[in-house]
């Protein structure tokens, strides 16, 4: 039976390989869920923490800062555990001490990362509630396409493409600002 190595898991995350991600969810999420639930959390908390944990690994792999000295699953579990402890600390106002381990220094930036994930979820939710036309225009805009390219693609004049970009973005901004979650996420 072929065995998936640590490198396979890291490559799978770096390359957003759905099959590898599925395997990671299948293998590691239950353990993380067990830990979070045993420590005052819910399954939803566990899934949030797990996503964050994988993103932490992703960023470290991208920065070429990750050298695993243990199994991938154990490392991911440790990352998630520390993220959850940090979150608990914030939630309960209690002190949680971490090992002074260089490997886990990213935990200090965890709050920022977590807010980013919440924003990503909120923005996408609101983005998906826009009209199909607006979604197309904004997607092109966010991906760096010029007004001229948008105009050509959508059959607009360049001037109309500029107006459309503004109107669609205003609609999205308004939807986001109206949501109570956005106000909670503001620093």
């Amino acid at each position: 039976m072929s065995k998936i190595t640590n490198e396979d898991f890291l490559r799978g995350i770096a390359e957003n390989d759905y099959t590898v991600l599925e395997l990671i969810y299948k293998k590691s999420l239950p353990e993380v869920t067990k830990y979070v639930k045993k420590n005052s959390g819910t399954f939803e908390d566990a899934k949030d923490v797990f996503q964050e944990g994988i993103l932490v690994v992703y960023n470290k792999v991208k920065e070429d800062k990750l050298r695993l000295t243990t199994s991938f699953h154990y490392y991911l579990y440790s990352v998630c555990k520390k993220i959850w402890l940090k979150k608990l600390k914030k939630r309960k106002g209690k002190e949680v001490s971490f090992e002074s381990d260089e490997e886990y220094s990213y935990i200090e930036t965890f709050d920022e990362d977590f807010i980013k994930t919440r924003k990503w979820i909120l923005f996408n939710k609101k983005f998906n509630s826009l009209s199909e036309e607006c979604r197309k225009v904004l997607k092109m805009m966010f991906n760096g396409r010029s007004s001229k390219e948008i105009a050509r693609e959508m059959g607009y004049t360049e001037e109309y493409a500029k107006r459309k970009k503004y109107k669609c973005k205003l609609a999205l901004t308004t939807l986001i600002k109206k949501s109570s979650e956005y106000n909670n996420l503001k620093k």
């Binding site: 991600l21 996503q51 980013k116 924003k119």
Partner: peptide
């Protein structure tokens, strides 16, 4: 934030898959 989180960056594509799996 909107620019960063709504562009089709590799990180955001990863977030999409993670969200789907979650």
């Amino acid at each position: 934030d909107m620019q960063e989180l709504l562009e089709d960056s590799p990180e955001n594509q990863l977030r999409h898959n993670l969200q789907k799996l979650s």
